[in-house]
Design a protein around this nucleic acid. Structure first.
Lengths: 175, 175
DNA sequence: TGATGACATGTCAAAACTAGAATGTGCACT
DNA sequence: AGTGCACATTCTAGTTTTGACATGTCATCA
């Protein structure tokens, strides 16, 4: 059992709000959590089966088309709280962009400049998309809404930082 | 063959500078790339074997204690350049911190505040460590040095952003 | 009634990653 | 001569992730 196991906690966190089926969870994922913890369909169903086996969730209801609605158990709630409060030493995340930056010397001057221009433009695009997302959501008073907004702000600041850095980096290239 | 495969490119990138053994590469990793692409010892050796099998690198020399020195081949150089210029659709990265933020509502007010204070402090600590790293390195005129500096600046801006965001987020918590 | 599309779950193989154990060699110093 | 450390590689076992494939059901509407 690894210390990460974050998909399970993402699912537990969604289920603490209200019971849901795998299909429901997939859709709720897309709206919010997919931005911070992408997961495929097969992963979600596999993890739900495991969570049920570990009795952190139970099948609370069944519906048409074999629908299974899951609800979080007491043990699941405890597990979720434990995970939330456990402070992690969080090792540095992988960064494919910076990995490329390290080896920019391999390219010629024009390609290098293009690379950074591309990054700046992508960041600007992401920034615009997040702004649009912020406008499109009707923020209510629920927890998920409040904390989702805070997470979105992180994204906005991050994209701004990436854009500014890429623009600065372009000025640092050898003439 | 997946589109990522970034460890191979990290190794190719290091080998383009000069030939090295697995052991050498591990050490060079620790100094620089480990910050943007952590890899374990077993991963490095496994990948070197595969790279050699794919003829992107070859054993250029052998030494005491079974040492095998690898050199990049022409095919390897082509592969590296290709990877560097290929523009990636780059899906959103996993973010365990933000995942937790989404579920902060589960905790009580004090725990929530502690959580964000912790984040701010960790970010501040990381920022200080990076500043120290920047001072401790003797930056020369090599490519790795120039681009390493640019990557480090990314880290500095990122940690600053994280700290500022965590401080701001604390002001957004419900009274 | 037939087609379509949303609903709904599941299985599989391959690749990647984690975490460590196991094994041994050569060098330098006392 | 002995000892300890840096050098150096390999293997194993388990977990996670990816990406696809397979299978079937229900509701709606033309």
């Amino acid at each position: 059992m690894l210390s990460t196991m974050s998909l399970r906690h993402a699912l537990l966190g969604l289920l603490i709000d209200r019971p849901a089926s795998g299909y429901d969870l997939m859709k709720r994922f897309e709206g919010s959590l997919a931005n911070v913890w992408p997961a495929s369909q097969s992963q979600v169903y596999t993890e739900l089966t495991k969570l049920a086996a570990d009795e952190l969730i139970t099948v609370s209801d069944t519906g048409p088309r074999g629908r299974k609605e899951y609800a979080i158990t007491d043990a699941g709630q405890i597990e979720l709280r434990q995970w939330l409060t456990e402070t992690k030493p969080t090792r540095p995340a992988r960064n494919p962009v910076l990995l490329r930056v390290f080896f920019l010397g391999v390219l010629d001057a024009e390609q290098r400049a293009d690379f950074l221009t591309d990054l700046a433009q992508h960041a600007a695009g992401d920034e615009a998309a997040l702004r649009e997302l912020r406008e499109s959501i009707d923020w209510d008073d629920t927890d998920l809404s409040r904390y989702g907004r805070i997470a979105l702000e992180w994204g906005l600041r991050f994209t701004a930082m990436r854009r500014e850095w890429a623009e600065w980096a372009a000025t640092q290239l050898p003439g």
